[in-house]
Simulated assay, not measured.
Amino acid sequence: MLVGELLLLFAVGLLSGTTTVLFGFGGGFVTVPAIVAVHGATGSDVAHIAVATSSAVMIVNALVATAATDRQILALLRGRTGLLGLLGLGGAIGASAAQLAPAALITWSFVCYMLGTIVDVLARPGFLRPATAADRTPGGMAIGTVAGLPIGTIAAFLGVGGSVMTVPLLRRAGQPMRVATTLANPLTLAIAVPAFLVFLAQRPDIAGNGGIALVGAVDLGSAAALLAGALPVIVILRRRPPRIPDRPYAWSYVALLGLSTATMIGTTI
């Protein structure tokens, strides 16, 4: 891997660490486009490598962030073993499906899902503007147990970690951005661990070795560069979290979704 590519991934890691703490994104929505951009000439399996490597990065990022989370916030997950279990099962199913799917399907599914999410949070009340009593989803967690299976499956298939789905759901239950994004990290962890184990068994089809050191479908060099940038940022921001008003906080989330989607489109056209 070229020095310039490593520096790019390191810079993306800085962004990944920031989004992990501030937005609950374990890294998937920024790392997948970055890895696709760096290894675009590797071969048809670049999307598989990107999603698998993203899962590895998300595990470490989400684990570090969760370990530093206020226990009062984590208490909202008490009694939700069924949800966490189905998120994990969905993660394994989604990762298995990603192994069989054409890379183009993963790439464009990622784009379509992100665009759909952006439209949803802009159009429906509860995310950027207050929901009425009729619109609001009851319950602090607002994620039904059975919803864990489709959330985990879609998240692992696309490599986005689940926060793109869980944060809007938590917002519509009336949770502030700080709580919704914080809870996204342990939920991401439940999805990413089983998905990662599935990805370790994958053998992607690349030209030669493409200059990539792979364990399963995980690109070790990219993962290391991304984590080198992400982990110090996570530690610093958890110790000194910035105080962001809720509404600008929510708009920043939407802006990052748009940036990630535009990046993925730009690297595949």
Rank of each mutant, 00 (worst) to 15 (best):
A134W: 05
T132N: 04
T137D: 08
D120K: 10
P130L: 01
R136E: 14
P138Q: 12
A123T: 06
I143V: 15
G148W: 07
R129H: 11
D120E: 08
G139K: 12
V121Y: 04
L115C: 06
P138C: 11
T117I: 15
G140R: 14
V121G: 02
A134H: 12
V119A: 15
F127K: 01
L115E: 00
V121H: 04
G126S: 01
A131L: 08
D135C: 03
D135P: 05
T132D: 09
G126Q: 02
G126H: 03
V119K: 02
D135N: 10
T137A: 09
A134Y: 06
G139T: 13
G148C: 07
A134C: 03
L128F: 00
I143S: 09
P130W: 00
I118D: 01
T145W: 08
M114A: 14
R124W: 00
G116H: 07
L128V: 05
G148A: 07
V119R: 03
T137Q: 09
G144R: 13
G116F: 04
L122D: 01
P130A: 04
R136W: 09
P138V: 10
T117L: 14
T137N: 07
D135E: 15
D120M: 14
P138T: 10
T145K: 09
I118N: 00
R136D: 10
L115K: 02
I143D: 11
A123G: 00
